[in-house]
Nucleic acid binder design. Sequence first.
DNA 1: AAAGAAATAGAATTTATATTCTAAAAAATA
DNA 2: TATTTTTTAGAATATAAATTCTATTTCTTT
Lengths: 280, 280
Amino acid sequence: MPDTESAPCPQTSPPETIDAFFERLGSTAEQLPKRLKQFADFIAANPDRVPVSTVAELAEGADVQPSAVMRFCQEMGFSGYSQMQKLFRSDYSQKWPDYTTRLAKLREHGTETPSALLAEFVEVGRSSLENLLTTVDPVALQQAVDVLARAETIHMIGFRRAFPVTSYLAYAFEKMNVPAVLHSGIANINMEHLIRPNDAVIAVTFAPYSQITIDMATQARSNGADIVAITDVVTSPLARLKAIQLLVSELDVGAFRALSATLSLAIALAVSVGAQRNRI
Amino acid sequence: MPDTESAPCPQTSPPETIDAFFERLGSTAEQLPKRLKQFADFIAANPDRVPVSTVAELAEGADVQPSAVMRFCQEMGFSGYSQMQKLFRSDYSQKWPDYTTRLAKLREHGTETPSALLAEFVEVGRSSLENLLTTVDPVALQQAVDVLARAETIHMIGFRRAFPVTSYLAYAFEKMNVPAVLHSGIANINMEHLIRPNDAVIAVTFAPYSQITIDMATQARSNGADIVAITDVVTSPLARLKAIQLLVSELDVGAFRALSATLSLAIALAVSVGAQRNRI
DNA sequence: AAAGAAATAGAATTTATATTCTAAAAAATA
DNA sequence: TATTTTTTAGAATATAAATTCTATTTCTTT
């Protein structure tokens, strides 16, 4: 009689999605032993804690022993808590999709045709736009609008990749009769001395930051002008200038970063400023 | 002389909120050593990963050594990674709402605030991007790429609202060493006679079409150059020039049309051309 | 109520992870 | 360029967490 061993039931495979997990939980919860049921209820009520908690913490929260947590995980088909937590963590990061890996996947299928490349830029633009609403601080945006609406003249600084942004701003301001100067750097004329204390500057730059933009912004700052910075991360050099920072994180396709989100931020900023100036 | 020891600066107290953390990061990032700066940028771009990642995972993501991560944490005033992660985890509970709920929330407050306006532009940009894949004919796009890849020099024409598009194209072409000329119309110099038979023109214009763009394109056409048109409807005046037409339909918010889709089309076009030229 | 089976708590162990340390490289200074 | 200082990478260690194990308790069944 060899097989008296303990294997209680044919080991079930672990749920592969959170939905599958809760489905299984719902159907088996009733049959669970006391402490396991108790823990199941806790998980159902606080699924958001799983990705960031240890076994001990969850056990304490549910008022169970750590070993009960382990038994629960195994009952649900996982090898242990670590595996279950991995599922919960992967779901968490789905809300902030890791587009870099996703793009890598797209690339495998070949970016050979222009249409495929276009599709990539569209996809990247879409998610950059969605991110935009989370990276731009509404308070900072309102401050920026206030500052720019008060300014006598608005100066726009941005070169290379940032130049389309400033030229778009220039177009919008002109259309709304807002006094604005686009510093294009043409003919190496430095117009920093045109920037006066009651003026404001919109500086646009992304890593790797163009030195000339930073220099001009610094000069303007020392002249007493306010600075609104459209940039990618808080670590940008413009932070030191006590600039009002509007952060945009664009994704890139290969060596090229999209501009969709930046442009949308720029036009929203310009239109808000125009509206506020006309209101006064 | 007892105190030769290493204590570099009086230990700063750790930031108590995420905002304080990023504020400190912004003000000290410039002075950080190379690898620490590198990691700082990574954190600034991916703060959402911190609560659910180990030191090793983040280190790999930022392409630094785990020990660099530790030095970073200590530099920021934490005792170590665990303490820093604790801060990020505490903030995690106030889940960053996802895109749709955030958008809905912004809309509630009406279009009065800049944030609400930004949300409008984001939404409009999104749907323009989605449309783009249906309005742009893949065959025409491929033709455009072929024509531009064959051209000796690429000329870009576009003014006012189209200028950000052409300047973006100019930036991209320059970066890829593709011979390209941006016709900015500065100083009213008409450079049409620079356009030679083996060249190609990218003309960008939208209703109401700017006469100067059409004139220049017409002139180029009579010189024997090929024309690629980025425009909004088939009835555009550029159609008569036997131009290869790439159609974009952008939606607008109030009096302002978004540019997200147009920019995405432009960059995809430029990168495809660059790739094809280098392939030959 | 007694025997058997199942479930549990808490300690013991194993594994993973954070942290520290040191030699080497890079940068700064003279 | 030589010297000193800072910064870094990678291995070594310490710490914390997950997992397993076992004696005990609690339920079931007869």
